[in-house]
C-alpha cells in the first residue's frame, strides 16, 4: 500500500528540472530585494531566524549538489570520489537476495521489484553524521511494501541489509576503511514505518551510482550512514544485526543512530548542521530532533534512553 505518508515539505508536485537547477540564482536575486522569508533564505539573508519547525518549506538541493558531495567509501573516502569512480559499478543486471525469516525467499531482480512497487516522490531532509545536511527529492517505494512482497514472518524482529562488494569496480574496498561489505540494519517497526523507503531515483531520474544505484534505503530520521546504498541483500532475523560503523567504532556509532541534537558525537557536536549549497559564508542551522520527523517517529522510542541507545 503506497502513499501512506504525505510530504510535510513543499514542492510535492513534480517541478521541471530547469526550475530546480536555476532556483539558487532566482533566490539569490530575490534575497537581494528582501522579498522572501522562511527557512530557504537562512543562508542568504543575515539576521533572519534559522528554521526550527518541521513544517517550514525547504528547498531541495540541486541535482549537482546531491550528486557531487557523497560518502560512499567503497569508491574512496573523499567527498568527490563517488562522483568520480562510481560509474564503474555495473547496476544492470541487479539482484537482491532476500532471505531469513520470510515466506518467499529468493533472488529478486531489480525489474521484478520495480514491476510490483508504486513509485512516489518524497522530499526528505538528509542529515549526515558529519553535521552537514541536504534536502533531497527521492523517488521510490516504502520498504514495508517490499517486506510484504517477501512475506516477512511475524517472528522476525530485525531487517539486515548488505551493500554490493565488487572489488574490481570499487577502488575504495582495497583499503580496510571498514570491514567490507557494508552492512546496516533496522528494528522491524523502523523498517515497517511509512517514512522508511527504498529510493530508486532522484528528481524523477534513475538513482545516480554515487547515490546508491539502483536501489538504496532512506531513513530520514537517522544519520545518513544508516541509509545503506546499492543493496544486494535483505535478511529478516530475530536478532539485532551487526552494522558497519558500529563494528568499526562502537563508542561513536550506535545501532539506532537517530538524529539527535542533544547527543553529541564523541568527536564533534551534533547540535547544529550546515546545509549544503549555502556557499562559503553560510551559517550553521540548528539540528532538529529526529531530523524534524519527531511527530512521526518519536513514538517508536517511547521509554527508551536515547543517550544509552544512541
Amino acid at each position: 500500500m503506497a502513499n501512506r505518508w504525505k510530504n510535510t515539505l513543499k514542492e510535492s508536485d513534480a517541478t521541471p528540472e530547469s526550475v530546480y537547477l536555476n532556483r539558487r540564482q532566482i533566490m539569490a536575486g530575490l534575497a537581494g530585494l528582501g522579498a522572501i522569508g522562511g527557512a530557504a533564505s537562512v543562508g542568504l539573508m543575515s539576521g533572519s531566524k534559522p528554521a526550527v519547525a518541521s513544517t517550514d518549506p525547504l528547498e531541495p538541493n540541486t541535482l549537482e549538489e546531491i550528486t557531487s558531495y557523497n560518502n560512499f567509501y567503497e569508491f574512496g573516502t573523499g567527498k568527490d570520489d563517488p562522483a568520480r569512480y562510481a560509474d564503474q559499478m555495473t547496476t544492470s543486471p541487479w539482484t537482491v537476495k532476500v532471505d531469513g525469516m520470510v515466506d518467499r525467499p529468493g533472488d529478486y531482480t531489480f525489474e521484478d521489484i520495480m514491476a510490483k512497487m508504486t513509485i512516489e516522490e518524497r522530499i526528505y531532509r538528509f542529515r549526515c553524521v558529519e553535521a552537514w545536511s541536504m534536502v533531497i527529492p527521492w523517488n521510490g517505494f516504502e520498504l514495508a511494501d517490499l517486506l510484504e512482497l517477501a512475506g516477512v514472518q511475524s517472528s522476525a524482529k530485525y531487517i539486515a541489509f548488505e551493500t554490493l562488494l565488487r572489488p574490481e569496480e570499487m577502488p575504495g574496498v582495497n583499503f580496510p576503511v571498514l570491514d567490507w561489505p557494508y552492512v546496516e540494519g533496522l528494528r522491524m517497526d523502523e523498517a515497517m514505518h511509512p517514512l522508511t523507503m527504498m529510493a530508486t531515483g532522484i528528481y524523477g531520474r534513475d538513482l545516480p551510482n554515487q547515490n546508491g544505484a539502483p536501489l538504496r534505503l532512506v531513513v530520514p530520521w537517522k544519520y545518513g550512514f544508516k541509509s545503506i546504498k546499492s543493496i544486494v541483500g535483505i535478511t529478516a532475523m530475530d536478532q539485532e544485526p551487526p552494522t558497519s560503523w558500529n563494528k568499526s567504532q562502537p563508542r561513536e556509532y550506535g545501532f539506532y543512530s537517530n538524529v539527535n541534537p542533544e547527543v553529541n558525537h564523541p568527536r564533534w557536536s551534533q547540535a547544529s548542521e550546515r546545509r549544503i549549497g549555502g556557499g562559503l559564508f553560510a551559517k550553521r542551522v540548528p539540528t532538529l530532533m529526529f531530523n524534524g520527523y519527531e511527530d512521526e517517529v518519536a513514538g517508536l522510542y517511547a521509554g527508551m534512553d536515547l543517550r544509552a541507545h544512541f
Binding site: S68, G279, L280
Partner: peptide, 15 residues
C-alpha cells in the same frame, strides 16, 4: 575558489 563556488558544494570544509 571557495568563495566563487569552485571548491565543491561544501567549500568551508574543503578550504
Amino acid at each position: 575558489l571557495a568563495a566563487n563556488g569552485q571548491m565543491g558544494v561544501e567549500p568551508i570544509n574543503t578550504l
